[in-house]
């Protein structure tokens, strides 16, 4: 690692499998404090799983995940909850609570954890909503918002308790160019302004390389490359080149494994 700043999350030799299917074998990475770290990889590689492992929602088969020096998976329930108050996660779907309006969604964690009086909570919520540009939408229900606005509202909720780290799960997936631009700007600004540690999991190469300070690329159950965006653009690894360049065929084949084409076409139905 060339970065000098303190490491907030340290993953060591982690392996994880779902039933028979191995998702990770021997993954190690470290996430520096106050930076935007991106984790990229093709779909279906288990990037969301990685975030859930960091958040302690899933437990690895072996290896450790340290958050600020504490082993996330050796914590008791209350210690784990104490850790989770220091981190926050932006889900792909936004995961806003559908039975309450935007204001109550953002206020939810504050009301549960902060014990602050309602008028102070109201001010904090309005400030957070102002930060994502949705103060005017405070009284709307989540279903009345567009996808991009839902994600921004969820972002306001994620920063409500002023966490040290935000985990972004596919923040750009399915967004139009304008909302994509807004989200890129917000992630960068929040990271810089609040000295937040950001972990962005995504397969949108251009956006990620644009905002990340450091990038890990996952494929084939492990990390195949890491470095700053510039280093990655220049890398020679053919798998990486295919992914960054978005080429349809290469080390990751276009075809799903099958028997010989000609042979299958000519074979008789039995």
């Amino acid at each position: 690692m060339t970065l000098t700043s303190k490491t907030l999350v340290e993953i060591q030799n982690m392996a994880f499998s779902r039933g028979e299917r191995v998702i990770y074998e021997d993954v190690s990475l470290s996430i520096p404090q106050g930076k935007v770290t991106a984790i990229m990889g093709p779909s279906g590689i288990g990037k969301t799983t990685l975030l859930k492992l960091i958040g302690g929602q899933l437990t690895p088969d072996s290896g450790t995940v340290l958050f600020d020096g504490i082993d996330v998976h050796k914590c008791g329930r209350s210690e784990l909850f104490a850790l989770r108050k220091r981190m926050s996660m932006l889900f792909q779907s936004g995961a806003l609570f559908t039975d309450m309006n935007v204001f109550d969604n953002v206020a939810f964690a504050l009301r549960e954890h902060s014990g602050l009086p309602e008028e102070i909570i109201r001010k904090i919520v309005l400030m957070k909503l102002e930060a994502v540009g949705l103060r005017g939408a405070a009284q709307l229900m989540p279903t009345e918002l567009s996808g991009g606005m839902q994600r921004r509202a969820a972002l306001a909720r994620a920063i409500a308790l002023e966490p040290e780290m935000i985990l972004y799960d596919e923040p750009f997936a399915g967004q139009d160019p304008i909302s994509m631009g807004v989200l890129v700007k917000l992630i960068r600004e929040l990271s810089d302004a609040l000295n937040l540690t950001s972990v962005v999991v995504s397969h949108d190469v251009a956006e990620v390389l644009g905002i990340a300070d450091y990038v890990y690329v996952l494929a084939d159950k492990r990390i195949i490359a890491h470095g700053t965006p510039e280093e990655l653009r220049l890398a020679a690894n053919p798998q990486l080149k295919q992914f960054i360049g978005g080429e349809p065929d290469g080390p990751v084949p276009f075809h799903y494994p099958a028997q010989d084409y000609k042979k299958e076409l000519l074979s008789e139905l039995d």
Binding site: K52, G55, Q57, F81, A82, R84, K85, M87, S88, M89, F91, Q92, S93, A95, L96, F97, T98, F108, A109, E112, H113, L161
Partner: peptide, 13 residues
């Protein structure tokens, strides 16, 4: 819609 996961990540059971 990940609302349950999201509660867990907010340290709410």
């Amino acid at each position: 819609t990940e609302q349950l996961s999201s509660l867990e990540m907010m340290a709410i059971d």
